[in-house]
Amino acid sequence: MARDLAIDLGTANTLVYMKGKGIVLNEPSVIALNRQTGEVLATGREAWQMIGRTPGYIVAVRPLRGGAITDFEITERMIRLLLQRVGVSRFTRPKVVICVPSAITEVERRAVTDAARRAGAQDAQLIEQPMAAAIGADLPIDEPVGNMVIDIGGGTSESAVISLGGIVALEAVRVGSFDIDAAIQSYVRREHGIAIGERTAEEVKLAIGSASPTEDESQAEVRGRDLMTGLPRTVVLTPEEVRFAIDDVVTSITSSVVRCLAKAPPELAQDFLVRGMYLVGGGGMLRGLAQRIEKETNTPVRMSNMPLEAVVMGAGHCIEHYDALKGMFMGARR
């Protein structure tokens, strides 16, 4: 018997929820290929380990980088492998609900659903990430009150106002936590003259990155390659430096939240002051980010319970109640 699936196809992490079972897969959205033959060598965590450490003939890529489908063929192969790994075959034919960034184009949408159908899905439906996030974060979206959810992922940041089971206002930008890594990378290169990889930059962000000053701040040692001598070198980064390096990215995220608030009807806007806005997504876990958004919007911000899983849990709930929640799928809006 086919078990229906919900997939959060994130730019950084992919999660799969199986109907009646819960989360059955959670790993980085990375695929490693042989450059010459195009053969898939690894996916997920194994492929992630290879980023920036491969010999010339192997490439480890994130096909969804930037919240857009940069390579249709690779994305299709990733979806196919993903479905195979959770047991989908030509004979099982489950229904599949896939969460996508709300900003994706019609062509990208078609590419994702076609890929899922070709990989064995009987029916493939899409749901907007912030909608799934709001369901998964357990916001009372069944009531006529304003619920605001802010999902900051690797490649996208999306804010949405939801009331009575529907999206009232939406604002999405293709900027996310990867851009923070990239900003750290280029800062270290410019100011300290050393080159570091994207994984090292991410480690710096996780260790000492912040969007506003916090208590117990510490410095971090970063190892990279000296641009002049080509030799390995270590530098020390302070939290202030990192904050400065990532400020532009943080500002574009907070401005998109402000724009979303401005789009909300006044009756709902007053609800946020009481209920607060909810942060989900890995990028939302950046130290001091909630406080920074709070300061810039004068509105309380709360962290959801399971920020990394909220989206797939919301989509999973839609697969559990597929018929009743059909109206939430993209393209089903009346």
Partner: peptide, 24 residues
């Protein structure tokens, strides 16, 4: 349909789905 939709989003319905993940 609308009532079914709203009911499926109620906290009780959602708790059933989420408890599965939380216990996991």
């Amino acid at each position: 349909n609308f009532q079914r939709h709203i009911d499926a989003l109620s906290p009780e319905r959602r708790r059933e789905s989420f408890d599965r993940v939380r216990s996991q």
